[in-house]
Amino acid sequence: MGDMNLEETISEPGRSGSRRTVIIVVAVVVALVAAGLGTWFALSRPAGPGRADVVRLDKQRVIVDNSMNLYDPLVQQFSGRYSNAISEKAGQAEEDKVLSQDRERIVRESQVNRDRLQQMAESPALQDQEVAESFNRFKDQYGAVIAYNDQLVVNTSNIYRSVGGPCAALHSSLNVASETYAQDYVKSADECLAALGTAKEGADAETTTLLTDVESVIRGQRDKQQEVLNSKDNFERLSKSTLAGIALLDINDAFAKAQTTYETATKDKYSKIIESANSSNSEFEGVLKKSLEQFDAASGEGK
């Protein structure tokens, strides 16, 4: 615009010299001001990755790392409430309430954490290749922690719904000495086996192994009690029920073994995940720190 003004002014012959000077001065001043503003604007919004981007990314890293500490209390709260609702037979409505409140809270938590990782992925600071590589490892490892906890919620629900539900009655509320024990056992065991069957849906490998182990223990006991029921006479019934009774003695060992296997496997899996996450976090932290130091050194030279 200023140029156009200038041109027009120049093209005017016979124009008063002082006025032209005034206009030129004004135009030059305007141009200078515009240039100054432009520079200020440009400087206040740097195009390349700046120190602030690195600081921001580091803060986001701290937030994600810190947020992982929430899974433990949240999962505990969920499993406590869910197991109470199931073992105390609070009813479907109450179970659904726990699922929609306490389980959904964890689902939302994971979504927020994934969003945080996604937001970090868009940081301009990732234009630095070293930062980007380190971030990708961080993202993968923390993504694994989030996925683990999501799966944990599914496993917990499945285990409580089956083992904690219909299966719990099997070895706590039936009277072994009762006349109808074999009959009661077979009926409860069938309910338990059905629940165990559905519980495997969506479960991970470790949980499926646990559920399968429990299933085979209970199926074995159930079949022995069924033999008692199938007995033709009193003597056969007595001998079968004695055998079934003796087999019951082993059941605690069998359950304990299944439980130990499960706990060891999941513990190992989780510690490995946490270990990798922690190491990717310290590495990422170190890279960001180095990047900040480079910025500080550069600005120090400039001064």
């Binding site: 120190r51 602030a52 921001r56 803060k59 986001q60 937030i63 810190n66």
Partner: peptide, 9 residues
């Protein structure tokens, strides 16, 4: 930390 990230410069 979210506020700090926002205030970073």
């Amino acid at each position: 930390d979210a506020i700090d990230a926002e205030l970073a410069e």
